[in-house]
Design a protein around this nucleic acid. Sequence first.
DNA 1: CTGACTTGCGCC
DNA 2: AAAGGGCGCAAGTCAG
Length: 542
Amino acid sequence: MNRIVLVRRGDDVEAHGPATVSRLAADGLADFVLAHEAAGVRWVWDDTTRWYPALLASGVRVARCTDLRLTHALLRRTPFADQRLLAAATTRGWDALQPVTASDAALFPLADPADELDPVAEHDRQLATLAASPERRRLELLLAAESSGALVAAEMTHAGLPWRADVHERLLTDLLGPRPLAGHRPAVLERLAAEIRTALGAPSLNPDSPADVLRALQTAGLPVEDTRSWTLVQLEHPVVPPLLEYKKLSRLLTANGWSWLETWVRDGRFRSWFLPGGVVTGRWSSTGGGALSVPVQIRPAAVADEGHRFVVADVAQLEPRVLAAMSGDLAMAEAARAADLYQGMVDAGTVATRAEAKLGILGAMYGGTRGESGRMMPRLTRRYPQAIALVEEAARAGERGEVVRTLLGRGSPVPGGERTADLGEPPEPSGPLHEQDRRRRAWGRFTRNFVVQGTAAEWALCWLADLRNRLWQLGEGPLEDRPHLVFFLHDEVVVHTPEQLAAEVAEEVRRAAASAGRLLFGGFPVDFPLDVAVVRSWAEAG
DNA sequence: CTGACTTGCGCC
DNA sequence: AAAGGGCGCAAGTCAG
């Protein structure tokens, strides 16, 4: 596979091919890429968010890339790389490089820090690092999968998720009343606010202020320390029903109300940015409109175009299946042979009920030690020794301050190192002993979860990458005319497709899942069963 | 006034 | 019904 490194030079682009360097005007790039794409090229660039949107806008899709920003981040943290081979004066610059979204580009058209970095030299360092790695094959797969994810993410932003503003508005009006003037509450919320004030005897109460509400509840003699919904449902008081209803509708208004529609939905598409590698475990994050937490409540507004369908697919219990496979635990894999892994555990006689199975497995993966899930641990340890040992060892390693890794070699953050500010407190040996202990165990829960969540994210990346290629083969013409991905969330995808191809898309989604399992776990006997639905609206799935 | 932090809740 | 892991976002709150 030929590699061509693309470099910005002012208004021009330099293309460093295997033997030649050519210089072209930026507006000639799309034609250049298209011409080389047919022969098979891996495009190497500093950052997909800085190159691919313009190519997509010109109607050019690429099959492969290396996203140096993302691959650099992986190599910097993996235990499988010799950091000396990666070191350069610009290492900090690559470390600090951030993806751009359209709003950033408008704000900072000049002085992109990426332009201070040399992609050709960085690419050479990365190749040398890979060549010297004792786990070269795994790392190369990880880097390719991450880069492919960058292409998928850019394509999803480009295409957008089909969204019917009229359906969304009707939903809002039905639940909240007509759109209010700026600075006013919708009629339904105003009515509920009055009920709440009456029930609490607090005529000037602001129900949007948790502190205000807490004081009023306590004044009314209710024994509460916070105002969370699950705290309130346990109370017997006339204020509870209207207050819960208020919170629910207020949430809809502020998170996904009329202003959300105006900000994020344009020309029948919800457009936000998906950020591969945005989470340290390798999960994606997103920015813009809260794309990764679109409430079920408003999913009826996600409607496929006329003559089109959504194919919605999600994996049942991805993380426990990944744990079974990565630990080589045959007994757990046997339970995973059932479409419902938890029911499989019941059928095998490991636990009495499905609820117990779920509680125990989630506790093992998240580090729940108290209550029900803690009581389940001895039984799970006896029945699934290898799976439990894997997460226990990850937890102990984290408690000792060590780095853990995913199957393909994504490394966990060094406690107390950079970029851990947003990960909670590292297990520093300072302060009172019980505080040290609390931090140590919290970090152990983080590393325990890291190995499973991170490997599950790798499975999902392989699934996405393979599915992306399969979908491209199903159609003709530009990306938007073919079946294409419009949404991805951890273990779920949504494909927008012409109606007549929907059945084939559903088949390819399953094939891609099987292929991802083989790629990561070889012949190990574990299934990744999918729930697949062909629907007009996202709300009809699941 | 702005920015940082807290609270609460949506998703997996 | 959450707990135990990972996020983004909006509004309120408070310090400077």
